[in-house]
Amino acid sequence: MEMHQKSQWDALPNLALANIFSKTSITDRSHSIPFVCKSWAHAARHPHCWASMVAEDHSPIGNSAADHAFAIDSNPNRVDFVDPYDGRRSPCPHRGVASLQGLIGRADGGAAVTSVYFFPFLTSDGGIANDDAILSLIAKHCPNLKHLSFHGSHNASHEAILEVIHNCRKLELVDFSDSPYFNSVILGELSCCCPNIRGIRRNGYLEPLFSNALITGFPRLRILNISNSTVVDKDLLAIVTGFKDLCYLDVTGCHQLMCYMHIIKVASARIGKILYD
């Protein structure tokens, strides 16, 4: 039976398999799939599988699921972003660097990498910080990076971050939550070097009037997630009036907002989706 022979799971076309594997979690992609059989291992080495550190979830219908994931779920604790090491940090700073090198090696030398998330396992626990080494790998090997999350990175130098910004000019979505890099120098460079930025995420402390610099630097921003931040009414008002193209705004868990219901009510006529408490 030729038909039967031809269509075993281990004899599917390489690209069809690679397409399936690209939708799996990084854990399954690296721990399980290559060990099933040789043809799966071959397909799992296809650069297409390694474009992203998260399961590729770019639905072709309607709103991009990648945007959705960025705006809502780009938190390593969420189920969709299963961390192979359950949030543990390695005591060895070389391990995270080796992990990222492994990823880059499979993804066509890094040219195919489109998204990198600072999972806790990439950074090290104690000892020498490896953040700069990781950022330097990204800057050197991933010129086509679109999504970058600094979530969980604390020890990078300004120089290392600027190197990434100067080399990854196709960046679109940047997540600054739980990292100390959301400052005027970095934002200034980001707005100069990366004209495609359309989404920014930040939680925690926000300086009063931070919105002015953000609006000047990224007037065409579409996605802004500042949930669980110290944003105040005045900045919220500046945001909803200043960003003309904004279509997603998340201000849940912002306890310093006082009289914001009116602002949101008026803004919701223009901004497609606003999340608030």
Binding site: D28, S32, V82
Partner: peptide, 12 residues
């Protein structure tokens, strides 16, 4: 279909 297959294999 690919997403469905990935979900089936998840964590197996």
């Amino acid at each position: 279909v690919a997403k469905k297959m990935a979900d089936i294999m998840k964590n197996k």
